Amino acid sequence: MSEKFNVVMSIKPGLPEQLLTEPMWKRLHEIANIEQHTEITDFSDPAALDRMKDADYLWYGWEAPQITADVLNAMPKLKGIIAAQGSAYKSLTDEARRIAKDRGIFATNVQAANSIPVAEYCLGVTLLESKDYTLSQHQYGEQRAYINREVNYADAGTYGKTVGIVTATAQIARDFMEMLKPFDFNVIAWSRHLTDEEAAEHGARKVDLDTVFRESDIVSIHTPGIPQTAGMIGAHELGLMKDGALLLNSARGIVIDHKALEKELVSGRIRAVLDVTDPEEPLPADSPLWGLPNVVLTPHIAGSMGCDLNRMGASVLTEFEHIAAGEPPVHFEANPLD
């Protein structure tokens, strides 16, 4: 066996034990020098600096402090950053990115692993709401009597319904479209740089953004929440939606104009399942969206949680196993400066 390498952790305390099962920890200890329960939460702490100076790899993740030039300079032996989050470089300052590039420090992430549960959430919502799940549950609970399904839910079902994907080039969107393939949905997709070939590869037809909102029975949002996309979906797009159509947002709340969305939902014209909101979840207690029969609010549960965290942990362990075997990383993340 090759010589063990040194790993330090900067991640939410206790999270590594949620990410890795006991057998995973056993395997990691076989190939790396790493101490459990030693998460670094302050890179300026003298004890942390003492451990950092010999680190070959940094296991980085949620709620960790930003990686600055000083942090990288404190780890002269550092070869790579193994991020247990969607991106490593988003947590590096511009100067730190330059240092990483100059020193050849690579980075990996668990975006692929974290994408799966979000796509599964979208699939579950799509299947259930195509059957008028929320509407029927409310009506059944209120009436507590026989309900004529053929009359009350005449449009329920999946066959031939249209699912529209906004920002179809996102990893979660691609995974979601793949999960939709076994079903009889018509899938249409939009993204700024989406090609006809890419859409077809995932079982979709490329259309413009207005067409997604105009033709879809379910519109699923996968747009990143960045300043350039804030309020990208407004009154115009929402106004194009069919009466009774469903808006599904598992991305970021700021992508949608909150006032325009609130107006449509309070009117009852469209439906929504929102795992994210603006203001960021939870909504204020006096928000009119609470309790609306056409709105489902979930507390940002689409991403990895519970046992799904072990998928992220398995991804992290795989990277370390490849390092131990002298193999290239699996989920390499390109430096934005490359």
Rank of each mutant, 00 (worst) to 15 (best):
V7P: 10
H202N: 10
N152S: 01
N310S: 00
A314F: 00
A260S: 12
S267Q: 03
R51N: 05
N335L: 09
A168T: 07
L265H: 07
V219M: 04
Q171M: 13
I165K: 07
M24Q: 15
D196R: 10
T108C: 08
S130D: 04
H322N: 15
A100E: 05
T167C: 14
A285Y: 13
E237V: 01
V316Y: 00
S250H: 08
I11A: 01
L248W: 07
P279V: 05
A32L: 01
D184K: 14
A84Y: 10
F176I: 05
A199C: 11
A112R: 01
A69R: 14
P227S: 08
L247H: 11
E281Q: 12
L283I: 15
N33R: 12
Q139S: 03
D70P: 05
F43K: 12
G164V: 06
N73F: 00
G80E: 07
L20K: 07
V125D: 05
A55G: 12
M52C: 13
L15P: 01
D243P: 10
E201S: 13
A83Y: 03
E333R: 03
K77E: 13
G203K: 11
K90D: 09
L309W: 02
P76C: 14
V166N: 06
F332R: 12
V207N: 03
D70R: 08
G306P: 01
Y140F: 11
E30N: 02
